[in-house]
Amino acid sequence: MMVNIGVNGFGRIGHLVTRAAFLNGKVAVVAINDPFIDLNYMVYMFQYDYTHGKFNSTVKAENGKLIINGKPITIF
């Protein structure tokens, strides 16, 4: 069973929760709420974590959404 979640804040904890959800496979992140971080910086933060290393999958910004492994995440 897949569980859909939204992440409130994409700082240190928020992007690590999102990373863990993608590695788990049973949790789908469908929305992220963070009015203080630019979408392009979200891509960079997610892809290159200074503690956990590089996320070895596709991460990009497209049409106002964060796309990870081809799955769009709505940004608020």
Rank of each mutant, 00 (worst) to 15 (best):
M2F: 10
V3M: 15
V3C: 06
N4I: 03
N4W: 06
G6C: 09
V7Y: 06
V7D: 03
V7R: 04
V7F: 04
N8I: 15
G9T: 05
G9Y: 04
F10W: 05
G11V: 10
R12P: 04
I13N: 01
G14R: 01
G14W: 12
G14C: 07
H15M: 11
H15V: 12
H15C: 12
L16R: 15
V17M: 13
T18D: 13
R19E: 03
A21F: 00
F22M: 14
F22S: 08
F22G: 08
F22V: 10
L23D: 14
N24E: 12
G25E: 00
K26R: 15
K26Q: 14
A28S: 08
V29H: 05
V29G: 03
V30I: 14
V30W: 04
V30F: 05
I32R: 02
D34F: 00
D34S: 02
P35I: 07
P35W: 05
F36S: 13
I37A: 01
L39A: 14
N40A: 11
N40E: 15
Y41D: 12
Y41T: 14
M42A: 01
Y44N: 13
M45A: 11
M45Y: 11
F46H: 11
F46T: 09
F46G: 07
Y48R: 00
D49F: 09
Y50E: 13
Y50D: 09
T51E: 14
T51K: 10
H52P: 05
H52A: 10
N56C: 09
S57I: 05
S57Y: 08
S57H: 10
T58Q: 15
V59F: 12
V59L: 03
V59S: 08
E62Y: 06
N63M: 02
G64I: 05
G64A: 07
K65V: 00
K65Y: 00
K65E: 13
L66Q: 09
L66V: 06
L66R: 12
I67G: 06
I68Q: 06
I68D: 05
N69Y: 04
G70N: 07
G70E: 06
P72A: 09
I73T: 01
I73W: 05
T74I: 08
T74E: 12
T74D: 14
I75A: 02
I75N: 01
I75T: 03
F76N: 14
